[in-house]
Every structure is written in C-alpha cells, then in structure tokens.
C-alpha cells in the first residue's frame, strides 16, 4: 500500500513535468491586429500630435505598432508594454495621464466644476422663479415707511418745481 502511494506520487511528478515542458514548447499565437490596436489606441507618439497610435499613418508609429506586436508575441502583458513605452519615450505617450501629482487636477477639476456650475444654476433658477422679499418680516412697518418715503419725495419734488 505504501509502495503504491509513492509510485502514484512519482507518476504525478513526472506527468506535471511533461505537461510543463509541452506547454512551454507551444508557440505563442501571433497577435491579431485588434490586440495590437487595443494597446496602440492607449498610446500617442510624441511626433504625431493628437493622433492615437492605432490610426497614425507615419513610419514612426508603424514601427511602434510592430514593436507592440513583437512584445505581445513574447507574452508581455498590456501593463508591461505600456510601462516599457513610458520608460522609453516618457509619460506623455499615455492617452490617459497617470493619477499622480498635478495630473490629479485633470480628474478632479471637471466634476468639481460641473457640480459647482449645477449648484449655481440651481440657486439662480430658484431665485428667479421665487423672489423672496428680504426685509418683509411679519409685523414690520414697511408700508408705513414706504408712505412716509413717498410723501417726502413728493414734497421735495414740489419744492424744486
């Protein structure tokens, strides 16, 4: 029984060894254009302003796409490829700047400005539709004051004309 157990363990080790060898020998399939363009779309070549790498027609960008294809074929992950491009050509190649330092402003400011604008608009609309008498406190002598003011105004006008 004990012998059978050890034989099973040995068979398992040999089987796993063969499996890993076979898997390692399998060639990585050639990456499709879609796979390359998926990553290329997230990158911008500094030479071609405002043109994503996946649609840029220049030689420089074609070379970059070929490089991405090679890296994918070698089994690199999307993050590894993007990291390589940042290291080689600077952070400005990224379509989406990393969320560090001043770059945070890009992510924070637009929603803050939109919310602030919505708040201001909401307040303005409320005030336009429902004007509130500021000094019309209940029980005030506003009408009396108004009459007095009008009377004095008329008196002044009479004096002048």
């Amino acid at each position: 029984m004990k012998k059978l157990f050890w034989l099973s363990i040995l068979a398992l080790i040999i089987a796993s060894l063969f499996t890993s060898i076979v898997l390692a020998q399998q060639p990585v399939p050639t990456p499709s254009d879609d796979e390359v363009n998926h990553i290329a779309h997230q990158l911008y070549c500094p030479v071609c302003a405002n043109t994503p790498l996946d649609v840029c027609p220049t030689d420089a960008c074609r070379q970059w796409r070929d490089l991405i294809r090679q890296q994918l074929a070698q089994g690199w992950t999307e993050d590894q490829i993007k990291q390589y491009f940042v290291q080689q050509y600077g952070v400005r190649v990224l379509a989406e700047p990393p969320q560090t330092g001043f770059n945070w402003l890009i992510y924070i400011l637009p929603p803050v400005i939109i919310l602030a604008g919505a708040f201001v608009l909401f307040r303005a609309l409320r005030m336009w539709t429902k004007p509130v008498p500021v000094s019309a406190a209940p029980g005030s002598n506003q009408d009396a004051l108004k009459d007095e003011y009008v009377a004095r105004l008329e008196e002044e006008l009479k004096k002048r004309y």
Binding site: R123, M127, W128, P131, V132, P133, V134, S135, A136, Q142, L145, K146, Y149, R152, L153, E156
Partner: peptide, 15 residues
C-alpha cells in the same frame, strides 16, 4: 434732500 431710506423693494438676491 433725499436721505437714504430703508429698503422697501423686493430683493432677489440670496445671502
């Protein structure tokens, strides 16, 4: 002479 008067108009501005 017209001196400053208490506000008797309706104010449309909030605080």
């Amino acid at each position: 002479m017209i001196d400053s008067n208490p506000i008797t108009t309706r104010n449309h501005r909030g605080a």
